[in-house]
Design a protein around this nucleic acid. Structure first.
Lengths: 216, 216
DNA sequence: TTGACAACCTAACAAATGTTAGGTATATTT
DNA sequence: AAATATACCTAACATTTGTTAGGTTGTCAA
């Protein structure tokens, strides 16, 4: 599956959210109204999403949008490595919300921010309140965190020097490196394009404890 | 909830079935076509079903049918956001071998190469034979793949230009970018320290389809 | 026998909806 | 410099779709 643009991902997330909330998919115009764009613009996005395999729809039918699951055809996957694959109910998994663009004002875990629920083997995360965050922008490419990556975050309001944290910045959640500077806090981007942010009024949302990336 | 007639139950069942199959609810006329009755007749049934509390719909909106679940407890969902996680045994997972340093001579998936078995939500990988590989060295830092990262790889012996692949090189599996150069193959490291490797004798083991990283 | 209900019908309307056509503007890539 | 991709627009068209109005027929209880 080809890489999605930010806007495409936002629209896909909205469809999934709408679906979860109402029980049926939105119309082209309903999507458009939410984003403040015309129906035809939405239609363009839907075509792009379909071309990239992220969405399925039936021509001419209203609300026929289905967000493609990566688990597409269940038959094929039984072929996984022959014996090394199995269903396993002994393995504990957790369901955590994957947050997209975190909207200002809302509580972080509000429905609006949730792109989807992802399953994680408990194996991979330690105790704590865990959520995932879709990384926006290229401010951490120097540390190997790219736009579209899925950061796994443990909620905590404090951090140690050098930790990669999720912080509320300019009404949006961003991923940065954390350093104490006396009474202030320094948020450092691993990309020369961005300057350090030094402030006393930064809210730490959590610490990045893992990262997942999906290649096409 | 009042008792449903046979016909009403049939229609309700059809809606649920349609939903499960397509991912979105049917229209009045689609239901009608299935039962060989007129749209307005279906509409009567829908009104009855709604009056009896078995169905919810939004006036004027297409496909806005939602089968009411009597077993549903709305609390669970909100509780999920509060506690941020829960156990879920319904989610399918797969077990894949995590390979460490792949020793020369041995079949790739030989016991000797397996570091451990890791659990992956099936959600995250498409069909194919999947294994994980612990990345060695810094030859791909420019693409955000670091030493110690866990690459998720789909076995395949061919690749497209630009793919990140796992290839057998100097008796060891390495991660590189793949390019065709006529009859030769070019393996490109995303790190200036390393030079391109151009050869006709490169064995492709698979394509990197995902990446997992764990921060301390 | 009257009245409520279920289960259908035809015909039609207005609104909702997917879709197309033909743009503009701005990047990025070749 | 040309080509491609993204992200929007207005305007219009043709269906699709929910809904209403006004029927018919049959069943069942009061």
């Amino acid at each position: 599956m080809k890489r999605l643009t930010t806007k495409q991902r936002e629209i896909l997330a909205y469809i999934a959210r709408f679906m979860r909330k109402t029980g049926y998919p939105p119309t082209v115009r309903e999507i458009g109204k939410h984003f403040g764009i015309a129906a035809s613009s939405v239609f363009d996005h839907l075509k792009a999403l379909e071309a990239k395999g992220a969405l399925k729809k039936t021509e001419g039918k209203s609300r026929s949008l289905v967000v493609a699951k990566n688990t597409e055809d269940p038959e094929k996957r039984t072929a996984l490595l022959g014996s090394t694959f199995r269903d396993d109910d002994t393995v504990k998994t957790i369901q955590i919300p994957l947050l997209g663009r975190v909207a200002a004002g809302l509580p972080m875990l509000a429905e609006e921010n949730i792109e989807e629920m992802v399953t994680l083997p408990r194996q991979w995360v330690r105790a704590g309140k865990i959520f995932a965050l879709r990384v926006q922008g290229d401010s951490m490419t120097g540390d190997g965190i790219y736009d579209g990556d899925c950061a796994i975050v443990r909620m905590q309001s404090e951090a140690d020097n050098g930790d990669i944290v999720v912080a509320m910045l300019e009404d949006e959640a961003t991923v940065k490196r954390f350093y104490k500077r006396g009474r202030s806090i320094c948020l450092h981007a691993a990309n020369e394009k961005y300057e350090d942010i030094i402030s006393r009024n930064v809210k730490i949302l959590g610490k990045v404890v893992g990262l997942f990336r999906n290649y096409a």
